[in-house]
């Protein structure tokens, strides 16, 4: 039997729901942050850096490093490790400073 974090704390979460990441439907558990839901789906990167166009994701996990910035329902520069994911949330990879389309 594979034991996971949910088994360890005997979590009986409320039913999962769907949200989208770059157009793809993924599943999250109520109460999870965007970063946690993406980790659960096996994704570690959801930002491309401004200078080197390199992939980034969560690093400090507590809102201090801003590496996990993501576009959430059209709003860029949201910290994925703090923002809760909700049913139907549209998450998109953030490119650059999140305002590239303004250039």
């Amino acid at each position: 039997m594979t034991r996971g974090p949910l088994d360890l704390v005997r979590a009986r979460p409320e039913p999962p729901f769907e949200f989208s990441f770059d157009g793809e439907q993924l599943t999250a558990l109520p109460g999870q942050t965007v970063a946690a839901a993406l980790w659960q789906s096996g994704r570690l990167a959801w930002r491309r850096t401004r200078v080197g166009d390199r992939p980034r994701g969560a690093f400090c996990g507590m809102g201090a490093c801003y590496d996990c910035l993501v576009e959430l329902d059209g709003v860029p520069n949201v910290r994925a490790c703090l923002a809760p994911v909700r049913p139907g949330t549209r998450v998109r990879t953030q490119r650059g400073d999140g305002h590239d389309e303004l250039r």
């Binding site: 946690a36 980790w39 990167a45 980034r56 400090c60 490790c81």
Partner: peptide
């Protein structure tokens, strides 16, 4: 160290405690 999957030790702990998830 900037590769996705390299995470803070405290960060992994925080994500696990709050979101019940692992980075790998």
């Amino acid at each position: 160290w900037t590769l996705p999957g390299v995470v803070g030790a405290g960060g992994a702990q925080a994500m696990l405690k709050a979101g019940l998830v692992l980075p790998g």
